[in-house]
Design a protein around this nucleic acid. Structure first.
Lengths: 340, 340
DNA sequence: TCTGCCAATGTAAACGTTTCAAGTCTTCAT
DNA sequence: ATGAAGACTTGAAACGTTTACATTGGCAGA
């Protein structure tokens, strides 16, 4: 088979110049109908396919956006990418996807690749939004970007998120309201998730407001299998807690499973709450009580916002979206543990 | 700030020609160490970043692969993409992601975009692998591609999958072995998933082998919320079934929830089995019994296989990976329903 | 018939790479 | 001194577009 036809081939076939062909493709109404038909026929005949890379090279804009998430294995990120992808598709943008596997070291490399691709802009979920070299680089190079799920302390970078601290605060208070006084947080590693830390802060503040001391904390690696062992002391030890606030729904679901493994019922013996609002949470038994964020919409909004930044229409700014507590059954009233 | 530095700028800065700069980038060892250092210094000084689009235009290979999945909202696809992305990353490939939202009509458009990007190859999960215009197009244009999760009947296209019919067969048999005689399948719409149909076939065959008549079938749209209503007749009607074989784990989890909504216990009143083996399945109560497939590995393998095809090293062929039944608790012995 | 204008089209120079053929210098044997 | 061999390096032509600018031709108005 001959090499792929180019615009030149189409032009020859249609007996026109390459400029006209280009015009038919890009500005169909600036060209007489006959000409357009002629060209389209030639394109179809030759099976022509514009080579986007030629265009990208010539144009300054590439109609491409880069996306960086920690992992697709956590539905919360997968869903957000789904939202991004949808919105990108609706606007003729191409999405290049990368993931950092929760490793801050890999973020820079991933972003570098994205920049080499000359993406018009980026949507990033970073391990840590503050003091992040990636953010510095992007600002220095003046590349539009939007942080997603990150809540940076500086207010001159665009970020779409819920109020992480507040989410944890609300979940924790829901437990306190049910009489729980001995609570622990099960959190993702702080180094690989500033959300985790922010949510811990909210947890602590709720305890403090209620005059409860010594907040417990267990940091776990996402995907690390044995929550069961890691929670043993907390659940069955001398100072066992009656409530577990988890920094993500995935952790919460794993925590519920761990409780069960230790012979504890949820919410009978232990109450468990999560944050994120992933859809499975609403389907399991007991239905997970969680601080729900509009994940997919957040992805869509991030892309919409990014488009604005690319066009220079909008200024970077943080958007804090509302969350709400789902009416889950995984949090119940405090009951003294039947000492079996 | 000045426009982005090009190779020419670097060359000027280093007092060398652009050809040498190119060689430093692409074949560092074919160049004296001093020269290399000189060039690298210039690159660093100027903050140079190769423009991949220039390269892509010139080279025939783009080091880019396109991925099409139905949706990222189903963890099974998200996980597979995670595998693809990992393997791509390890091999210096860029991933362009698109999703069809389960709509066969959108597949062609998505693939078209991917082809305009001159991807080196594609990994696709199609609604229907047989008689698919996308497959025809790709074969005609001679573009390497691997189907993932699809199990086409023709054997000259590369496909990585588990044995769908067999998976359903196994799950169904597990129920039959527990004494269930009245079973239904809850399946995704056949038009948007050939897996669904293949799994239904396996389901039917198991029933047939056991001499059971009239297999029930409910087709539902993924994401369609109210399984509860759709299963009412099946669960509470005159000829209520005692077992639900679901064509995906997501459906199974939703089905369990639906059972609960109808006041039925799983597996006490109804047994439920799934197919896919998504990770949450192992964490919920009751632990989901499922035909587990190595989703992430399948993604990795798909990319590895695709790389082979791109290099022309491998011939298209189908790879059927083994699945196994998880030791879930969602399938229990048949018991006559306590008529409350 | 000529002028001028407008619509339709064409010409050619980029965009930033890669790469082949063709340089330039050393070095060294004659 | 001369030439050959090698080690490095360079010039310049692609790759497939877009687009500013130039050209053409037809036609209205004089």
């Amino acid at each position: 088979m001959s090499p792929k036809p180019t615009m030149r081939d189409v032009a020859r076939k249609a007996g026109l110049s390459i400029a006209t062909v280009s015009r038919v493709i890009n500005f169909p109404d600036e060209v007489p109908l006959d000409t357009a038909k002629n060209v389209t026929a030639a394109m179809r005949y030759l099976n022509y396919r514009p080579n986007i890379n030629g265009r990208r090279l010539k144009m300054t804009q590439t109609s491409t956006v880069g996306v960086l998430v920690p992992t697709l294995a956590n539905p919360v990120f997968a869903t957000s990418v789904q939202g991004i992808e949808q919105e990108a598709n609706a606007n003729g943008l191409t999405v290049i996807l990368t993931s950092s596997e929760y490793d801050p070291e890999r973020e820079m490399g991933a972003v570098s690749t994205l920049l080499n691709n000359r993406v018009d802009g980026l949507i990033l979920t970073l391990a840590n939004a503050d003091n992040n070299p990636v953010v510095d680089l992007l600002r220095a190079e003046n590349i539009p970007f939007v942080l997603l799920f990150n809540q940076p302390s500086r207010d001159d970078v665009a970020a779409i998120s819920v109020d992480n601290a507040r989410s944890a605060f609300d979940v924790t208070n829901a437990m306190i309201a049910q009489g729980h006084r001995s609570l622990a947080m099960v959190a993702g590693r702080f180094e690989s998730s500033d959300r985790s830390r922010q949510r811990y802060d909210g947890f602590c503040r709720a305890l403090q407001d209620a005059g409860i001391e010594t907040p417990h904390l267990v940091q776990v690696q996402f995907g690390e299998s044995d929550l069961k062992d890691q929670l043993e002391e907390l659940l069955c030890g001398e100072h066992a807690v009656s409530g577990l606030v988890c920094s993500t729904d995935m952790l919460a679901i794993a925590a519920i499973s761990a409780c069960r493994s230790h012979g504890l019922s949820v919410p009978g013996d232990v109450s468990v709450g999560g944050i994120d609002g992933i859809s499975v949470g609403g389907l399991i038994t007991p239905k997970l009580c969680s601080a729900v964020q509009p994940t997919q919409e957040m992805g869509q909004q991030a892309l919409a916002f990014l488009r604005g930044l690319i066009k220079g229409q909008a200024n970077p700014q943080s958007l804090l979206l509302p969350h709400h507590l789902s009416d889950g059954e995984s949090i119940g009233p405090f009951r003294r543990r039947s000492s079996t």
